[in-house]
Design a binder for these strands. Structure first.
Lengths: 208, 208
DNA sequence: AATTCCGGAGAACAGTTGTTAACTGGATGA
DNA sequence: TCATCCAGTTAACAACTGTTCTCCGGAATT
């Protein structure tokens, strides 16, 4: 996977990552469409023109951030949804996964929630594509379940989107509760768990 | 309700509304956090300083837009959720209401979807408050239903939030499909209907 | 009819923005 | 070792931003 990079390429990737990190930090208090290129380079400590060595524009940077934020998440989602044990345990595992991810990468989660409907079209599209892939993968997992007997492809995808959207809503709620009391965060977890459970109950009786 | 305004106050409200309309139009291609005050006044055709006669800042304008976009929606939601006939018909009515509203006020819907998780805190809070009120009202309607027998207040509110979030997701999908083919828009409607139906099925079997 | 009020205009302010061009100096490959 | 490459720098550009202060003219009040 990892090539042995020369000193030059390593340095380039380092500043590129620094630009992305700085942007992500700045985006906690604004939207991508108001993020200035000079603002980012100033935070990193490089000249404004250095930005162009890595990105064509801040929108371009945003697309790269989408890849960073969601690209590595696919195996985790698959692993979480798979799990052949009880449905209740699967839900708890999913909620815990989300809570843990929000704790570990709050800026990434905030960025995705913010720019999913944000003012920069290419970024919206990148997020939509990634979420669409999530839905496809969840669908593939659901299809292998015994409960999927008799379900049409269309209905499976419908349910998958419901789950994916619910995951995002839950992540956003955990994010809001990040600086709140532990009891509040626990309450968010319980709320999300019950909502997922209700959806799963609907799934179980869908074919009645 | 409506006072008879003097010429002066009428003119003031007129330019205030013009500022809000221009801002809403400009926000179709960017986020509020990048909306400049001069940009808005230029679009209206007034001096930049005139802006301050109406709003302290663009964030302030945003809060006013939230009120305009969501404030008048409460009675509609109540009326749609009430309706004592079949659950299936109620869902279809709700989806139609959403589709119609998106067609009638696309810029408002886009604004809410965009700024709900956007970069301007006061606006986020204003939207959160309004959506919270929606959830409370939906909950009150659900509580009067016969199916609410044995439901805890907490579970009713859980379900209400699920419904409200689902409405927003649906509105956002309709928005994306606004310029798509009529078949695509119909597909969005069917998807949303089935998702709402699945949630309603989950509701029916919640107490099992 | 005389006075106050006030929404909007005008000019000016110091800072900021994206983008260009030409450059430097160390890593790279022959 | 020497020529090439290229990430990052410096300087300059016109255009733009939010905000202040001063002023105007017509509506509102007395």
């Amino acid at each position: 996977m990892s090539h042995i990079l020369g000193v030059r390429q390593a340095q380039k990737q380092k500043t590129r990552q620094a630009l992305m990190d700085a942007a992500l930090a700045l985006l906690e208090e604004q939207s991508l469409s108001s993020l200035g290129l000079r603002e980012v380079t100033r935070a990193v400590g490089v000249a404004p023109t250095a930005f162009y060595r890595h990105f064509r524009s801040t929108a371009d940077l945003g697309v790269a951030l989408v890849e960073e934020a969601l690209g590595s998440l696919h195996p985790m989602i698959r692993a979480t949804v798979t799990s052949a044990d009880s449905s209740g345990e699967r839900i708890e595992r999913a909620v815990d996964l989300i809570a843990g991810h929000v704790n570990a990468y709050p800026a990434h989660v905030r960025f995705i929630a913010r720019e999913r409907h944000g003012g920069v079209q290419p970024v919206r599209e990148a997020i939509r594509d990634q979420l669409g892939r999530f839905a496809d993968e969840v669908k593939a997992e659901l299809a292998e379940d015994a409960e999927a007997e008799g379900w049409s492809d269309d209905d499976l995808l419908m349910l998958s989107h419901l789950y994916v959207d619910q995951m995002l809503i839950t992540a956003s709620l955990f994010l809001e509760a990040l600086e709140a009391s532990p009891e509040d965060r626990e309450r968010v977890g319980l709320l999300a768990t019950r909502q997922m459970r209700l959806i799963s109950i609907g799934r179980r009786h869908w074919l009645d």
